[in-house]
Simulated scan of single mutants.
Amino acid sequence: MSAAVLLTRSDADNQRLASKLARFGIPALSVPLLRIDALDETPDQQRLMLDIDRYQAVMVVSPVAARLGLERLDACWPQLPEGIEWFAVGETTASVLRAYGMPVHTPEAGQDSEALLRLPIWNELLARPGLKVLVWRGVGGREHLADHVRAAGGQVDYLELYRRESPDGLAAALASAEQAGARGIVLTSGQGLEHWYTAAGEHWREQSTWRCWVPSQRVADRAQTLGCNDIIVCDGADDSAVLAAVAAHPLTR
């Protein structure tokens, strides 16, 4: 039985990446670690969208946030509001926004808020009095960008569009993947890591020996704390970053 890489995004995303890995002769399995539940729009959230032209910048943190946010934007704005700088965390997220017709800022290196803040345009934005930034995201998340904006006297608001839950039957799916030859796992978030750790249960001793491809040093540090010791840090979480890292560090068993 050849060793396989376990992909952990949605089934559709996993199938797309699996076909790319197959070109390198790398077998892959699919077990989503997150179930995405879209949230109903509240009156406060609708006001945020109706008043989106009051923001100088909008940051979109994921392809899911982009798709759900654009659905709401389309219902409120027949044309794109002007005067907004759009930012995307990762090229996959940026491609969703560009397909809608938006000019998007995204870093060439790195796929997190730290990389976004290194873009030169933030020097100008953070110098503006009364800067207002809106973040499209799921429930919860890191506050790195918000801390920087607030430290400069600006305001950050959140449009929370979805909730990430652990899928039903995850423990059994992980055990089946292990039986089918999974010996490595691609993680795209810290929350996915936590879901894996919890669901693995009594199998964690074996699964923690798998090679882990992670999107950032922050997730790598947490994985190491949980007992993982074969960790590869990718340059982000999108297909190109994962493909490059898995191809450069393939499984050998």
Rank of each mutant, 00 (worst) to 15 (best):
S19Q: 15
S30F: 01
E114V: 02
R142E: 03
R47H: 12
R142N: 11
Q46H: 04
E206R: 15
L161P: 02
E114S: 12
R205T: 14
L159T: 05
L80T: 14
L193I: 01
M102K: 12
A223P: 03
L187Y: 08
A247P: 00
T106H: 13
N123V: 00
R47F: 01
L131P: 09
D147M: 13
L159N: 04
A172L: 13
T252M: 11
N14R: 02
R98M: 14
D230H: 14
A175M: 06
Q224W: 01
R222A: 13
A247L: 12
A3F: 00
G130E: 03
A220T: 09
G83Y: 03
G141A: 04
D13N: 12
Q179V: 06
P43K: 09
Y100N: 04
L80D: 09
Q207T: 10
G110H: 10
H195N: 15
W136C: 01
A65W: 01
L17M: 12
G25Q: 05
R164Y: 00
A247H: 12
L48F: 08
A199T: 07
V156R: 12
L226R: 13
I121W: 08
L33E: 05
A244Y: 10
R183F: 10
E194M: 13
L117Q: 11
A18K: 04
G236M: 12
L73M: 14
R23K: 11
R211L: 01
D157R: 14
R23H: 10
S176A: 15
A245T: 01
E108N: 10
R253T: 09
A199L: 09
V186E: 09
C76M: 12
V31E: 05
I231S: 02
Q179W: 02
I231N: 00
T106M: 10
A4G: 01
G101Y: 06
V104A: 06
L170M: 09
A22T: 01
V5E: 00
L29V: 11
A115K: 07
K132W: 03
D13L: 12
V214M: 02
L226K: 11
Q56G: 13
L126Y: 13
L80H: 13
H249G: 08
E160S: 08
S176N: 11
R142H: 12
L161V: 03
C212F: 01
H203A: 15
L7H: 03
Q56S: 09
M59R: 00
A65R: 02
L80I: 06
R164G: 08
D147V: 11
A177L: 06
V133H: 05
E108R: 13
P107A: 15
Y162S: 07
A245F: 07
A200V: 02
L159K: 03
Q46Y: 01
